[in-house]
Structures are given as C-alpha cells and as structure tokens.
Design a protein around this nucleic acid. Structure first.
Lengths: 221, 221
DNA sequence: GGATGTCGTACTGTTGAACAGTACTACACT
DNA sequence: AGTGTAGTACTGTTCAACAGTACGACATCC
C-alpha cells in the first residue's frame, strides 16, 4: 500500500480495514454486496492475505458477515442495525449514569468542556469526535474496560452516521442545540439526580436516532 | 490441520483460534507471554498466515494484545478481567430482565427446561453450555443482536472459567444447587416481578464470580 | 414439467517460500 | 557512562499455487 511518509504509523491491514469500513458505512459498497478478496486485493494493490486479515477485523466489528467458503458480505445501515446500535448505547449509558458517584464525574466534566469548546468550530469531524468522547466518558464511569471497548466498537460505526448528521441536518447548524442536548444530562448528573440523568440521556439518544433514521430514509428514497 | 470427519464444520482458522483461546484461558500460555507466529505455526502444522488470522480473532475477542512489529502477547485471567467480565453480564442481564414482557419469556423457559434436563448428566461441558444458554436467552429478550453478540463474546471466555468451576467446585457436585440458583430468577420472571428477577440475577452472578475468583486464587497460590 | 445428476467456473481456504523492515540484544568505541 | 554498530529474531506483506466448496447451467430421468 502506498505510504508517502517514511514513518509507518499504521499497518497496511489497518488502513485497509479503515478504508473498507468507510466504503461500507458510506454506502459505496452496497448492503449485502459480496466482498471478493481478489477483487479488493487487485484494486488496492495489496495481497489477498492482507485483505483477509482486514476482513477479519471488519467481521468482528460487525461490518461484514463471513460465511465459510462464501466469503464476506457487507452489512448495511438498515433501520434494524441502527436500532440495535442506539439501543445498546441507551442500555450502557443509562446504567452508567444510574450508578455514577460524585468522584467519577471528573472525566465527564472534562469531555463536556471540550465539547463546548469545539461546538462553534464548524468542524464536523471535531464536533462528532467530541460528542462521542462525551458519551464515552459517561460509559467510562462504569470503570469496565470490557464494556468500554464494546462502546468504542459501536462508536466507530456511529461516527460515520453522525458525520452525516452534522453535515446535512439543519438542527446541527446551530451549535446551541448540539450543546443543550448534552447540558440537560450534565446538569442532572451534577445535581446528583441520577435517575433523571439517565432519562435525559435516553431521550437524547432516542432523539438522535430518530433524526439519523429520518435522514437515512430520505437518502434512500 | 487434522480433521477426522470428512465433513468440515469449522475452518482451520477457527479451530486454531479456539485452541489458542483454550490455552490462554487455561493458563497453558502464561499471561504476558509472547505468541510467536512461526512457533505456533510449526507446532500445530499450519501456515503462518493462518496463525495470523487466528490471532486477529483473539485480538478482537480481547484475549491477546497486538503491537505493531512486536506481535501478540497473551492477556490473562486477572481478577480485573474477571470483574469486568461478570459486571458486564450483570449490566446486560439486569437490563434485559427489567424490560422483559410476558411474550418474551418463551425462549428463557425453554433454556431453563434444557438446563434442568442436563443438570444431572454429570457432563460438565453440557451443563456449562446449558447454563450459558440460559443466560443468553435472558439477554436475547433485549432483542438486540448487537448486544447478544457481545454477550456471546463474553460467553466464550466464561465457558472456560465455568468448566473449571463445574469440575473442581464442590458446590457444583450437587445438581440441585446449580438449578436452584437459576430457579429463583425464573420464578421471579414468571411472576412478572421484574425488579426482583434482576436482583436475583445480579446476586446469582456475583455469587458465581466470587467462587471463580476464589478458585482462581487458590490455583495461583 | 419438475426433480435429480453432472459439470464448469469462480471463488475461498490454506500453504510455503520469500524479502524488507523493525525491535532488542550484545558488543565495541570514546 | 554514553553512544554507535552489528547481528539476530521476528513481524509485515507479497506471491504463486492447489485443493475444496458454492452456484449456476445444462442434461436426464420419471
């Protein structure tokens, strides 16, 4: 694989996995489409073995399904996938918020501050990252690396959907709205009103889900 | 790789991943030990590329850490890992139980019946599988394939610890105890007493965790 | 005409050998 | 001590090959 810099920060396999992930999530590789190893290898100028390794990464990340002797097929941003994705977040975040203690909210405060800082930048990528980092910090309160890495898996996929949202959704043009959705959570958390914080988070996430789904539907039609 | 039957149900890579997982979880591969590709390939009589693919599966399953140009190192069943593993289960199962509806308990009933059936068999592997399947059925009520596959990931690791438990723990010799722990959950669920079912599940899981940790400690010493 | 064989093609699964690049160790030089 | 400098042991990646499997097309049989 091409590598302009002399320093290799990531491996070919990882680059390839990222590339494929982006193609799948952006729809360039259509849902259900078979992913032929040799084709990908030829197109990208890498070895078939390298493609296989990359596909294994995607598989565990849930982006492709791999059937023996049939290879990998791309899964797609169907409504069900989105539902599962967002519902998983609700489960994790609500549990985290409900069990939060005062000493734990430090990192969440920090992530929130960062989000405020970036909100006006207009840089979609940074906003989305800060958004996800905020929610990641909430999950981090569970203090469970297992769950956290599960969330990060979801997060990677979410990133693409959210980029979409930030770029195309009017609502997101007003940074105040981006912020206010998170402030209600933050306020409740600060006040130690955990049950309410969880409820706010649930509705915040549901709200976002609805918007992503609507956007998705409008694109398909 | 050897394959007695003419039918190939799993691929070499998967067998290899399972084999390595077992070695790691059973302690045959000591924590922090480097996993040299060529050594494994030579020992098992498979190609190095095949080993790499298997290692990628383990990596995403959390059983090894992979550093660029340094290869894979085995992680180990430390108390923290166990804590995370079991706490993840508590989070998921309690949420599932709390949100259960009457129509959903069918599969759980079925899994429970199966567990009763196997309890007296004395076959450790079958008991553990039935046990995990029961808890899997509970998680299944969430109707979230994403979460379910996360649980299955945990499940695979848990399997080894539990095998250990069933074989070496006195408590498990009496099948009545195996069953009763699950019956309390089942009863509460049947009665529609969801909050209690969740509490029972939490204590059941915590109880098991404590036993596994004790066992682990006694082995190390 | 529908069920059942049989081929051929297009892949996947797996191997073995090769080579460049990197981490780590030991040893020499100042 | 502090800094080169090999040397060694792997990893990262590629390539070419072959066996085995899935699937579609076509032929056969009743």
């Amino acid at each position: 694989m091409i590598e302009g810099q002399s320093f290799r920060r990531t491996t070919t396999v990882q680059q390839l996995a990222d590339w494929l992930a982006e193609r799948i999530l952006s729809g360039a590789i259509t849902p259900g489409q078979r992913l032929r190893e040799s084709a990908v290898a030829a197109e990208l100028g890498v070895a078939r073995n390298t493609v296989r390794e990359a596909v294994r990464i995607l598989e565990l990340g849930g982006l492709v399904r791999h059937e023996v002797n049939r290879g990998a097929v791309a899964v797609s941003p169907t409504p069900e996938v989105l539902d599962d994705l967002y519902e998983s977040r609700v489960i994790l975040e609500c549990t985290a918020l409900r069990s939060a203690t005062t000493e734990q909210i430090g990192p969440v405060e920090k992530a929130y501050a960062q989000l405020l800082e970036v909100a006006d930048s207009g840089n979609a990528h940074r906003i989305v990252s800060a958004d996800l980092a905020f929610h990641g910090a909430i999950i981090g309160m569970l203090n469970n690396s297992r769950v956290l890495s599960f969330y990060e898996q979801l997060s990677r996929e979410l990133h693409f959907y959210l980029m979409y949202l930030v770029v195309r959704d009017r609502e997101f043009e007003q940074s105040s709205i981006v912020v206010s959705g998170h402030r209600t959570i933050m306020d409740a958390l600060r006040a130690g009103n955990l049950e309410q914080a969880a409820a706010e988070a649930a509705s915040h996430i549901e709200h976002n889900k609805a918007r992503v789904k609507a956007l998705l539907a409008s694109v398909v039609s």
